[in-house]
Design a protein around this nucleic acid. Structure first.
Length: 567
RNA sequence: CGGGGCGUAGCGCAGCUUGGUUAGCGCGCAGCGUUUGGGACGCUGAGGUCGGAGGUUCAAAUCCUCUCGCCCCGACCA
């Protein structure tokens, strides 16, 4: 492609709407254009990247034994009512009416459609297992699209679904997919970390996310040198054991004005880890108490899952008072009528300090289960960097990342609802066991740039770069620069290289800056200076130095370099 | 949904407080000339319903009301 013909223009100024680096660079490089909030056009440079990523995905999906299909974007709302997921998606569903006033949704995902499809064509265990995928546009009315391509309302997604006769089959296919995913990111030149993930209220028994580590990512990953890695939403850590003396009698203590754990602990000459913290939440319109050791924090996602709540938030101070509780002195002791969820740290010691459930009062020597009851005791604590790894005891680290893939073991809840069953050898009917596996292709593009850029622009990994080589002739009248550049351009293309020829009559500065901005992995400069030595200058985008390569060797070298270098 | 900000040429912005000629500037764009290894320069030129509607006024980019859109923080995000 010639730059003079390429649709899209680079700009020097950063468009005001862009805050995120990848967003800014894509706009400046002329790759995308915003039509409305979270809705973008992809210009040729961006589309080439998307297509390269898709080609890698297709190859890996096919190799894994799955088949490609294409399902409708327009889906009857009724189907979603049958699956019971209208509420789960809530306002995220784009709903519209057709001319006959029937409700339709723009598909935010395709579990419902594919399960219906599979129910139609699978009757017997002989028809299983099956893996089907598509690469298709999804619509989700996000409350707040942001970060350019990182969170949008219309996006391309690869979604694959597995169908098996039993859990063992699912486990096997899940493993196959997990390895295919690793291969995809590897081949894209984008090292992703696989982490344990929360599967949400609807998810099945296991779920993993693939994260591209980058400081600007909005997800936090907790990881350990032993290989443990989990989304902070899901991560666990060792809570340790505290003083475990003989239980003393429960005793109220006057603690005037002391509301925080720190105040109370220091007043009582104790430590936060010797206290209980009690938080008040509203879950599906009911007041609930969450109890946890004072030195730990509640992980609200774990709490929400423990309660199987669809909606949960901290209670306001007014709601706390209205419930007859005293902010700062709330306690599971001497209280009645609330559901209590306790972290399993509550019995990691003895003689804890807890709220008194009346003003300016705490209890000391609180012991579980002697002094209070909990309806649920489970892990609701937030893991954090610096904590101890539950697997190996090592110290946990944390890093930020962008979620670029998510796989779930769904189980049978959808096949049961939608009637996707098979008959076994005995003629008995069973629900099909499902898994689903998604990659956000557009987000991967944004995340790739977040991870691979410098102050000059994008630095594409070779496998997904829109072109492999930027060919920059520095024209000067009376020199053969133009002629030789054209010859190289033809030669490169004939050798199967993807090359972008900057045939503009612009100054070297403009060409170099634009080349850096667009970020093709290799730059080949032809100038009077290099021709004096019968050579061209070749430079890697991610390296400082360049080298001169003789004209008669450069094509062969480029073929070699575009194949062998990972970046 | 709560909080904050912004809509003026393709892009980045000024002008608005205190209403008053043909609404400016930089980049980009078109033409001509001089330049050419890290965003050159000169001259000439094109390009605007000032987001939209209504109102106040002799007069509105500017004041008032309503409305639409976009961005950021939070909530939310199977």
């Amino acid at each position: 492609m010639r730059v003079t013909r390429l649709f899209g223009k680079t700009t020097r100024d950063v468009p005001a709407e862009a805050d995120t680096i990848s967003h800014q660079l894509m706009l400046r490089a002329g790759m995308i254009n915003q039509l409305s909030a979270g809705v973008y056009s992809y210009l040729p440079l961006a589309l080439r990247v998307l297509q390269k990523v898709e080609a890698i995905i297709r190859d890996e999906m096919n190799k894994a034994g799955s088949q490609e299909v294409l399902m409708p974007t327009l889906q009857p709302l009724e189907l979603w009512e049958t699956s019971g997921r209208v509420k789960a998606f809530g306002k995220g569903l784009f709903v519209l009416k057709d001319r006959k006033d029937r409700d339709l949704v723009l598909g935010p995902t395709h579990e419902e459609v594919i399960t219906t499809l599979v129910a139609r064509f699978v009757q017997s265990y002989r028809d299983l297992p099956q893996m089907l995928y598509q690469i298709q546009t999804k619509f989700r009315d996000e409350p707040r699209p942001r970060g350019g391509l990182l969170r949008v309302r219309e996006f391309t997604m690869k979604d694959l679904y597995s169908f098996d006769v039993d859990e063992a089959g699912l486990d096997k296919n899940y493993d196959i997919m997990l390895n295919a995913y690793k291969a995809i990111y590897e081949r894209c030149g984008l090292p992703a970390i696989m982490v344990e993930a929360d599967s949400g209220a609807i998810g099945g028994k296991a779920s993993h996310e693939f994260m591209l580590p980058t400081p600007s990512g909005e997800d936090e990953i907790i990881c350990c040198s032993c290989g443990y890695a989990a989304n902070v939403e899901k991560a666990t850590c060792v809570k340790g054991v505290c003083l475990n003396d003989k239980p003393e009698p429960l005793e109220p203590v006057s603690t005037p004005g002391m509301k925080t754990i720190e105040e109370v602990a220091s007043f009582m000459r104790s430590r936060p880890s010797q206290t209980y913290k009690t938080l008040v939440y509203v879950a599906d319109n009911n007041i609930i108490l969450a109890v946890i050791r004072g030195d730990l924090e509640v992980n609200e996602i774990k709490l929400k899952n423990a309660l199987k709540a669809t909606d949960m938030r901290l209670a306001t101070e007014a709601e706390v008072r209205e419930a007859g509780l005293w902010p700062g002195f709330v306690s599971p002791v001497a209280v009645d009528g609330f559901k209590v969820v306790a972290d399993d740290s509550i019995d990691s010691g003895s003689n804890f300090i807890a709220g008194g459930n009346k003003p300016d009062t705490h209890f000391k020597n609180v012991n579980y289960p002697r002094d209070f009851k909990a309806d649920i005791v489970t892990d609701i604590a937030a893991a954090r960097a610096g904590g101890k790894c539950a697997r190996c005891g090592g110290t946990l680290n944390s890093q930020q990342g962008i979620e670029v893939g998510h796989i779930f073991k769904l189980g049978t809840f959808l096949s049961t609802k939608l009637g996707a069953n098979y008959n076994d050898e005995q003629g008995q009917s069973h629900p099909i066991v499902m898994g689903c596996y998604g990659i956000g292709v557009g987000r991967l593009l944004g995340a790739a740039i977040e991870q691979n850029h410098d102050d000059k622009g994008i630095i594409w990994p070779m496998p997904i770069a829109p072109y492999q080589i930027a060919l920059c002739p520095l024209y000067r009248d009376g020199t053969p620069v133009g002629e030789i550049a054209e010859k190289l351009y033809a030669e490169f293309q004939a050798s199967g290289l993807e090359v972008l020829l900057d045939d503009r009559k612009e100054s070297p500065g403009i060409k170099f800056n634009d080349a850096d901005l667009i970020g093709l992995p290799l730059r080949v400069t032809v100038s009077p200076r290099t021709l004096e030595k019968n050579s061209v200058e070749v430079k890697w985008r991610n390296k400082k130095d360049s080298e001169l390569i003789p004209l008669d060797q450069v094509t062969a070298k480029m073929v070699e370099w575009t194949r062998s270098r990972p970046k």
